[in-house]
Amino acid sequence: MSAADGRERAGWGTYLLLGAFTVVSVFPLLWTAVAASRTSGRLAQSPPPFRFGRNLGRNLSVAWTEGGMGEALANTALVAGSVALGTVVLSTLAGFAFARLRFRFRGALLLLVGATLLVPPQLGVVPLYLVIARLGWTDQLQAVVLPSLVSAFGVLYLRQHLVEALPPELLEAARMDGAGTARVLWHLVLPAARPAMAVLGTLSFVAAWNDFFWPVLALTQTGNPTVQVALTGLGRGYVPDTSVVMAGALLGTLPLLVVLAVFGRQIVGGVMRGAVKG
């Protein structure tokens, strides 16, 4: 790359500014760990602690049991995993149909999906809550999984990807050979869609893990909480100990940070690709 394309070699100023930005991005997480290793008495004093204390094990264990974080982590893993898997499957099937098949109302249905991109899901929570309550699903995990499977972004993203990645000639050839829908899906659509499926799956997993508003309505601290519900309970005084609250925040965040550290390249790529195409 030449300097003319706008990509200068970074000077020390660039590193300095990026370094500062990185510190700001990471510091609150580091300090969460520091606070989780202290006592609530120490956290009530000024200046705030900057070094690790000895209380981490105790606080984590209280957050895990009394704070319900253990159960919440298991629930959230289940919820986020189901949401990611389900969203990817539904979006791939519908995205393929929209990308490569002709059927009546295709244009109208696609328009409908696109129109809902700009409508926040929060708008529907009142009737949604009544439906869930009527079904007896409050405090049950399917109450937060099922609504999250509906991703207008997912369908449009997969459609866009398949329009580019699945040549129509390939489909025609498969049809000439007498391949049925199932075989076409398995042998043509799936391989072509895989990169977009990975991106969508990752983004859906993170979004479901951190989903807040609806889970706080549909689930309760003492019922079947997700991490966010349990943290809300902790934040509102369920366990009146600040260092335990911080230990809970640490427990609830750590899994995603580990995922980010291990799959950093893929997640960065996913956010960047998802945005360009989405």
Binding site: Q228, T232, T253
Partner: peptide, 8 residues
């Protein structure tokens, strides 16, 4: 920060 939840 994006991986950190609203609550945390």
């Amino acid at each position: 920060p994006y991986a950190t939840s609203v609550a945390a």
